[in-house]
Amino acid sequence: MHGKICYGRKVTRRFAPTSLMLGNIVTGCSVLAPAGMLHELSEGLSVSVRTAGLLITFGAIMLCIGSPLTAWLTSRIERRTLLAATLGVLAFANVASAFAPDYTSLLIIRMVMLFVGALYTPQAAGTGALIVPVERRGSAIAYIFLGWSLAAAVGLPLITIIASRHGWRVVYGEVGTAGLIACALLLWRLPRGLKGAPVDLKTWVDLGRNRLIVVLLAITTLQMSGQFVVFTFMGPLLTKLTGAGSDAIGLVFALYGVFGFVGIMIATRIVDSWGAWRTSVLFTALLLAGVSGWALSAGVYPLMAGSVAIWGLGFASANSMQQVRLVTAAPPLAPASVALNTSVLYVGQATGSAIGGLLYARDLFHSVGFVGMTLMALALLVVVLTRPRRAGAAAA
Results as ranks from 00 to 15, higher is better:
Leu207Cys: 09
Tyr7Cys: 13
Met111Trp: 06
Cys183Val: 09
Ser273Ile: 10
Pro68Leu: 08
Pro17Arg: 05
Tyr103Met: 12
Ala329Ser: 14
Leu150Thr: 13
Arg137Phe: 11
Thr177Leu: 15
Leu185Ser: 08
Val324Phe: 02
Lys195Tyr: 09
Arg79Lys: 15
His39Pro: 11
Tyr103Asp: 07
Ala85Lys: 07
Ser105Gln: 02
Ser297His: 09
Gly59Cys: 03
Glu43Asp: 13
Gly36Phe: 06
Gly66Asn: 04
Thr374Arg: 03
Ala35Asp: 10
Gly66Glu: 03
Val175His: 00
Ala124Asn: 02
Ala289Ile: 14
Met321Gln: 15
Arg387Gln: 10
Gly348Val: 03
Leu212Ser: 12
Gly263Gln: 04
Val384Pro: 01
Tyr172Pro: 02
Gly23Tyr: 07
Arg189Lys: 07
Gly23Thr: 07
Trp72Gln: 12
Val116Ala: 04
Ala60Leu: 05
Arg389Cys: 05
Ala339Phe: 05
Arg269Asn: 09
Ser292Lys: 07
Thr27Ile: 10
Pro101Leu: 13
Leu241Asp: 08
Tyr360Gln: 00
Leu106Thr: 04
Gln227Lys: 02
Ala98Val: 06
Leu282Ile: 09
Pro157Tyr: 08
Trp277Lys: 02
Arg76Leu: 08
Trp148Lys: 00
Ala339Glu: 00
Gly369Trp: 10
Ser343Pro: 04
Gly193Pro: 07
Gly243Pro: 00
Leu340Gln: 10
Val327Ile: 15
Arg362Met: 09
Ser297Lys: 03
Gly260Ile: 03
Val89Gln: 03
Thr81Glu: 11
Leu217Gly: 06
Gly290Asn: 04
Thr374Leu: 13
Ile108Trp: 10
Gly226Cys: 11
Pro191Tyr: 05
Leu251Tyr: 06
Gly138Ile: 00
Arg13Phe: 09
Ile219Pro: 11
Met304Val: 11
Arg136Asp: 14
Ala60Gly: 09
Leu180Gly: 07
Arg76Thr: 14
Met265Ile: 11
Thr342His: 14
Gln223Arg: 01
Phe99His: 10
Val271Met: 14
Ile162Val: 15
Ala71Met: 03
Val262Cys: 14
Ile162Asp: 06
Gly8Asn: 07
Val26Arg: 00
Arg362Asn: 12
Ala129Asn: 01
Met21Leu: 15
Ala151Phe: 10
Ala391Ile: 07
Gly117Asn: 07
Arg189Phe: 14
Val170Met: 15
Leu41Gln: 02
Val344Asn: 01
Arg136Gln: 15
Ser75Val: 12
Ser105His: 00
Arg325Met: 14
